[in-house]
Nucleic acid binder design. Structure first.
Lengths: 226, 226
DNA sequence: CGCCTTCTTGAGCCGACTCAAAGCTAGTGG
DNA sequence: CCACTAGCTTTGAGTCGGCTCAAGAAGGCG
């Protein structure tokens, strides 16, 4: 349940600025839903700030996170394909997002639409890569893949500084992304730290040796984050 | 390498029948590629007969199959999004497919295009479901999910007879789909057989108790194969 | 008939899990 | 400024699901 009300508001109502025609904004706090399973989403969100994730919860409490949304990402490109969300999406941090209509664009191909198609393509590819990682890789390889991907996406969004970036995930979130337990994530991160592969503390990620981390992740050359 | 030549041919050349305008057909034998990593596909294939799969091979021989294509499926809807295939697709059996242009449809929405969009949406959703299964489920649950999904898709394609259907996969293929080893697939299938959950032999699948198998797969009610 | 792939079985091992209990923060309120 | 709390991280000890290695049985096909 939303603890803070609906989370969606017209920018005119609280900012005193004219929003671009037909566009308004939405704000979410951690744990607030951007979409619920089986319910039509309020719109397609273009994240401006903050992180969100899509997941599935099994009856006995097992959880798997199936997508992460970073600033600059669309959430969720699949929605334009006309199906109801099959998995809920929640904010991981405070989120600010532009809200746009959620339907298949028709007619002329604008830049915004091109970006949306590209985003859809990248999502599909990332999912396919994660099927490989979850199906066949070790804990060490999984973590390397995850941290590399998140860093690379943050870098592209202009949010990396040198070889570091923000990473507002708990070890439990990381466990639910990689299909591991929090305890094992903790131990594996320690061993990565010991080998100089990553530094990760206080929600901040640093990658001292990108090449080494890439090799650890056993990604194929043209994997999404190339 | 294709052992049998290119695999794509204009139907007029070998069937003596007029093909629908602008459409031709392609034939593949087991292990022939429908698409290679990083190379533009010959077209978008609409499978009429036979099975194919998409996969990734890691350097040390580990393989994960990331999609299966059955008769009636498009292979591969993602291709219309304008990226080069990031994972190869090979035929698992003899395949007959209609070949169509591989680009984003524009203009009026025909029935064929609607089917293509729906197909893309279903693919995305299936992938998301498999992320959960590979990340969080036991061997038993994974196999139940797989067999249930394949049966249901075959049923929708009109290729199930009562509670049985063809299933032209080796136990090694099944292992590469479920992220397990062939040995463990074998043992787990035996225990499923012993519990009366499935019968699987000679490339033929029978599901005596659909409800029991569904419960075993711990799927959420509105999972793709609902 | 002989070859090759697939399936099956046995024995031992190990990567990741479970359970449990401390240490850390960071935020809250007195 | 400090006690108090709640959530997160870390550590230890023991277990187990699925893996590895190896060999034999059972198909399928030329």
């Amino acid at each position: 349940m939303d603890k803070m009300g609906c989370g969606v508001s017209n920018r005119d109502n609280n900012m005193g600025q004219a929003a671009p025609l037909g566009e308004d904004f939405a704000f979410f706090r951690p744990h607030q839903f951007l979409a619920r399973e089986g319910e039509p989403p309020d719109g397609l969100f273009h994240l401006q700030e903050g992180w969100a994730c899509r997941y599935r919860l099994l009856g006995d409490g097992r959880r798997q996170i199936t997508a992460v949304y970073l600033p600059g990402d669309f959430c969720e490109p699949y929605w334009i394909l006309g199906r109801l969300p099959s998995q809920p999406v929640v904010a991981l941090t405070n989120v600010r997002a532009a809200r746009m209509p959620c339907r298949l664009p028709t007619g002329a191909m604008t830049d915004g639409q091109k970006r949306l198609w590209r985003s859809l393509g990248e999502s599909c590819e990332r999912q396919a890569s994660w099927l490989v990682t979850l199906g066949r890789k070790t804990a060490l390889e999984r973590l390397a893949h995850l941290l590399l991907e998140l860093f690379e996406r943050m870098r592209r969004a202009g949010l990396a500084y040198g070889q570091q970036c923000a990473l507002p995930l708990t070890q439990m979130d990381i466990a639910d992304l990689t299909g591991l337990t929090p305890v094992h994530v903790n131990r594996t991160l320690q061993s990565m730290r010991a080998r100089g592969l990553v530094e990760l503390q206080a929600k901040w990620l640093r990658i001292p040796d990108m090449q080494a981390l890439r090799e650890t992740a056993v990604l194929t050359p043209n994997e999404v984050l190339a």
